[in-house]
Design a binder for these strands. Sequence first.
DNA 1: TAGAAATATCGCAAATTATAGATATGCATT
DNA 2: AATGCATATCTATAATTTGCGATATTTCTA
Lengths: 113, 113
Amino acid sequence: MNQELTPIDDEQAIEIFKALSNQTRVSILQMLKDPENNFSSQAHVTKDEGFEGGICVSDIRSKIGISQSTTSQYLTILLQSGLVEMKRIGQWTYYRRNEETMKKLEKYIGLKI
Amino acid sequence: MNQELTPIDDEQAIEIFKALSNQTRVSILQMLKDPENNFSSQAHVTKDEGFEGGICVSDIRSKIGISQSTTSQYLTILLQSGLVEMKRIGQWTYYRRNEETMKKLEKYIGLKI
DNA sequence: TAGAAATATCGCAAATTATAGATATGCATT
DNA sequence: AATGCATATCTATAATTTGCGATATTTCTA
């Protein structure tokens, strides 16, 4: 079946590259690759809510060691570029990787650059 | 035989992402994909010198329409990130894409991010 | 309904990047 | 050796990004 992905355009690609040109934001993405391992609790919460692998802002913050406001801003940048997706559940906001964007980015580099 | 490429590390990847987070620099890379087509003359020069596909700075400049100093600076940024390589021949400096870095970047995104 | 906790947004100073003009350097020609 | 190109580097200013504390907003709970 293999649904074709709509490719990203130059503008979106550049927004992604900007998001990736910061070590802390790249580290956040890398941490989110293995939520179970990097973040002890909560796995069941997001799973039950249909948002498996989602991690809340404060967990990311304590793992990375930057301020709350910077954490929130970085996640917004990652969200707007499409590299992560989020879901609010109660007072928590959970973020997880958007693997589809990763694949699109890989294709963009292979084909368009 | 397929020689394995030494992978790039986070630091180099971020330098590459910075280089790519500018529309003009991305355009330069895209133009260099098809040197024959985008740049009329000179093809034979670089070929004879063992640097096929190389384009000189002033040709790139006139195609893109930015100042000479900005062109030179952008090419230096692309060079330092490894996305292009260069060869000086006489009074000209020729630049061409470094496809190996492209492949490494694709792998980096698929495996490390 | 008054706190408390989690997150987002605002406003700011510091650092970095963008871009260009001016100048320097290297090479070729006379 | 003087001049003319091609390119690189220097210097400066405007624009953007970084990262934080302060404040606002949302949601939960007593």
